[in-house]
Write a protein that binds this DNA or RNA. Sequence first.
DNA 1: CGGCTGATGATCT
DNA 2: GATCATCAGCCGG
Length: 164
Amino acid sequence: MRIIETEAYLVGDAASHAFRGRTARNAAMYLERGHAYVYFIYGNHYCLNVASEGVGVGAAVLIRAAEPVLGLQTLRRRSGSGIAERDLVRGPGRLARALAVGRAFDGADLCAPGPLWLATRSVERAPELGASVRIGLTKNAAAELRYFERGNPLVSGPKRLAAN
DNA sequence: CGGCTGATGATCT
DNA sequence: GATCATCAGCCGG
């Protein structure tokens, strides 16, 4: 998968799960950067985040959408038949489902060998990024902390937020 | 299309 | 008991 859309949840950010301090749920946000923080939301979905600061600092980046590169068949199998190919990993809930990400990955080191990991790859031309307000928030809703690959049709969210 | 809404359960107050 | 970093389904244009 190639990640194309993320949202940042910073220290002191009222929208962050870590805003009110460390709890059992958000503990993974306080791990060293590169560790997964997975939470269950709305009684239906998991969301995959990556801790983004040092040990003891609560911050993370939500992975919102990606572009499939390999394993399309596997993604489709896990997502069920009712879903369009373009939506397989479009949106944080569907992305987690297609990648089989659940609580088991909470706290996992994504920079170490394992079934789920992050990698960087050199690109000929850096993708042009857009920024916008984050999606679905009530607190600190004005902060422009969502970043996405501009022009990519697989980016999630309302079309009006894709202009920047 | 775009906008609205109900489902659903863990978490925290 | 309220809140919620979502989604699918439904409705109107």
